[in-house]
């Protein structure tokens, strides 16, 4: 069933999962996850530890059989034709699968062979992957002798050397220093132009910086799924963080026209919710000056995703089940 469905929509669906579930004994690790990924899309997969992200990724890459549900990669059913489906996937597991006593170039050549890159193109594919991940200088070094950050990069290079349609990265920036993280993020963005990427992480700014879409998992269920753009639009400017050294009563803040709610968000820091369309920033500044509240900071709340995340993943289980 390989149907190039170009006619329906320009970006074809590269990865689709329906009702994916996995039980370990009586414990349900993943429960009815639906997922769809189009070409050129970067999907951020979020969730607290133990939410089922890694289990889901293992099922998407054919390393774990689902209890229920189906996965198709570029129109090929992963459970019925695993070998063909896997040829479209590049996977970086939580622990990078590196042979420590191989040289970087030698290892990537092996990976290219295993993924059936034709021998004429193998050299170029390995060189390209090395260049993309900043590994050209260490090509002749033993993987075991490299630092953790470089090993992580070899792990990413391993997932992209055969130019797969779908790239699945389980916490790709773990163990990297800030500069390397920036490089890897740029690389993921670049790859996202032509490939489909799923990456799991618990670094929220990372998702906001590089993903088109975000899905949040909690207790094995998908609790949130939306585009980053929609998320930003929805929350943009609706919460102000106001720092006051000499704060008034909460009611006084809440009484300012355009403010719907005010609450403490830390020491001398307040979270002020704003009604749609209103902008009470000027009023707050003027009032703060008049009444000597000691204003030292006023800014729109930056970490919108964090709010959503905390909101969704700290509710108790009964609450979550009611909502689901």
């Amino acid at each position: 069933m390989i149907s190039p469905s170009e006619s329906t929509a320009p970006p074809a669906v590269t990865l689709a999962a329906h009702g994916l579930s996995r039980r370990f004994g009586s414990h349900t690790a993943v429960d009815g996850v639906d997922l769809q990924l189009r070409r050129g899309e970067v999907l951020g997969f979020l969730g607290p530890n133990g939410a089922g992200k890694t289990t889901t990724m293992q099922m998407l890459t054919g390393n774990l059989a689902p209890t229920a549900g189906a996965v198709s990669v570029c129109g090929v059913d992963l459970l019925e034709a695993p070998v063909e489906a896997k040829s479209h996937i590049g996977y970086l597991p939580e622990t990078p699968p590196l042979y420590r006593d191989m040289k970087v170039g030698e290892y990537l050549d092996l990976v290219a062979r295993l993924h059936r890159v034709p021998s004429a193109k193998r050299r170029a594919a390995v060189d390209k992957a090395q260049a993309r991940c900043g590994l050209s200088d260490v090509s002749r070094k033993l993987i075991g002798k490299l630092s953790k950050g470089y090993q992580q990069r070899v792990g990413i290079a391993q997932a992209i050397v055969h130019e797969p349609d779908v790239i699945i990265l389980d916490e790709p920036t773990v163990g990297l220093d800030p500069n390397q993280i920036r490089d890897i993020r740029a690389l993921i963005r670049e790859l996202g132009g032509t490939h489909s990427i799923i990456l799991s992480t618990h670094i929220l700014p990372e998702v906001e910086a590089i993903c088109d879409r975000v899905q949040i998992m909690h207790h094995g269920k998908l609790v949130y799924s939306d585009t980053i753009a929609a998320l930003k639009q929805f929350h943009s400017g609706r919460i102000l963080l106001v720092g006051l050294n000499n704060p008034p009563a909460m009611d006084e803040l809440a009484a300012i026209p355009g403010v719907t709610r005010a609450e403490a968000a830390g020491e001398h820091l307040f979270r002020v919710s704003i009604a749609a369309g209103a902008d009470p920033t000027t009023q707050i500044v003027t009032l703060a000056a008049e009444r000597q509240w000691g204003l030292h900071q006023i800014a729109p709340a930056q970490t919108n995703l964090e709010d959503v995340f905390v909101n969704l993943t700290t509710r108790d289980v009964t609450d979550g089940e009611k909502a689901a």
């Binding site: 390393n63 695993p82 070998v83 896997k86 040829s87 597991p93 622990t95 699968p97 295993l114 059936r116």
Partner: peptide, 14 residues
């Protein structure tokens, strides 16, 4: 043990 077997089981090989 080193979880390198994942490289083989993720590749298009039976």
């Amino acid at each position: 043990r080193n979880q390198t077997i994942v490289l083989l089981t993720s590749a298009p090989i039976s």
